[in-house]
């Protein structure tokens, strides 16, 4: 079953801006799906239409085979949204926000309170349960939004840049939490500007640009399309003046740093053999850029060239 089916979806805003141009998209139940695109590409409009915050111009959206226009209440009860901007009442207490949101989904206080407590513990907000939302740190506010989206146990969770402005430690703990709830059966759609995040978490991906889906595939096949990868090598000692590395495109950044392009049909063993032959010791190595980032830029540039 598909968790989400979008057919021929278009949106033109009242000022004439065309945000979506007849897009089609499907997300399978249980998937961890990345929806990527540059700013203004149409990601938030798509999410807005799925969650009823934006009215569509034409097309059709179904959540677990339920049409959001024909059966809005049924469809909405299956969805949870973590929006990009903080959108809670800052003057309300953290726990009140969660219990009220559960109430809007029909969960009475006796069911809502234990559920809110459970999420407050899981997301590290228990000590702040009686604080007003505006007194929380940025990271805590993000976690509060995740807790609020999950309070009614949605089957499809949509996260619009959930880790924006969150420090790396907290981001990684949020990744672990999201992976856990995905393993427990919640389908997740994620938009993010951190492509490393999408690469680490998501199994399938769609890239949207200027209102069109320019790519929709699984993460593995997309990454396999990468023609080359660039590695930065940190060397134990300075390179000799006559240093050359046949069959590899190299760039010497300084005496002890080397940048090497590795073609798709090449492998790291060949590179290290060649370096060992010349008695060059490598202390450490890293990717110059995130692999998905390179592909993303290629796809977006390509779509700009064809428009």
């Amino acid at each position: 079953m598909n968790a989400l089916s979008i057919n021929n979806l278009s949106k033109t805003y009242s000022n004439g801006f065309v945000a979506l141009k007849r897009i089609d998209l499907t997300v399978k139940q249980g998937d961890f799906f990345a929806l990527l695109g540059p700013n203004g590409a149409g990601k938030s409009t798509t999410i807005g239409i799925i969650t009823s915050l934006v009215t569509k111009s034409s097309g059709d959206v179904q959540v677990f085979d339920i049409n959001i226009e024909k059966n809005p209440e049924q469809a909405k009860s299956l969805l949870g949204l973590v929006p990009q901007e903080f959108n809670f009442n800052g003057f309300e207490q953290v726990k009140h926000i969660l219990v009220a949101q559960a109430g809007f989904y029909g969960l009475a206080k006796k069911e809502a309170e234990p559920r809110a407590d459970e999420l407050l513990h899981q997301l590290g907000l228990w000590d702040k349960r009686h604080s007003t939302a505006r007194s929380l740190s940025g990271g805590m506010k993000r976690r509060l939004m995740i807790a609020r989206a999950l309070v009614h146990r949605p089957k499809l969770l949509i996260l619009d840049e959930p880790t924006a402005g969150v420090d790396i430690e907290l981001r990684r703990s949020m990744w672990a939490f999201l992976q856990k709830i995905n393993e427990q059966g919640t389908t997740i759609i994620l938009t993010t500007h951190y492509l490393e995040e999408a690469e680490n978490l998501c199994r399938n991906i769609a890239i949207i640009d200027k209102g069109l889906i320019v790519e929709n595939t699984d993460m593995k096949s997309l990454l396999n399309r990468l023609d080359k990868e660039t590695f930065v090598l940190d060397l134990a000692s300075a390179l000799p003046a006559d240093f050359k590395l046949a069959n590899f495109t190299i760039q010497q950044l300084d005496d002890t740093t080397l940048e090497v392009d590795l073609q798709r049909d090449d492998n790291l063993n060949h590179l290290f053999s060649a370096l060992t032959e010349q008695h060059i010791e490598v202390r450490s190595m890293k990717n110059k850029a995130n692999r998905l980032e390179e592909l993303f830029l290629n796809l977006v540039e390509k779509s700009e060239a064809t428009l």
């Binding site: 009823s52 915050l53 949204l81 009220a100 989904y105």
Partner: peptide
């Protein structure tokens, strides 16, 4: 938006 996304 808390109300608009909810089944109310």
């Amino acid at each position: 938006e808390e109300l608009l996304v909810a089944p109310i």
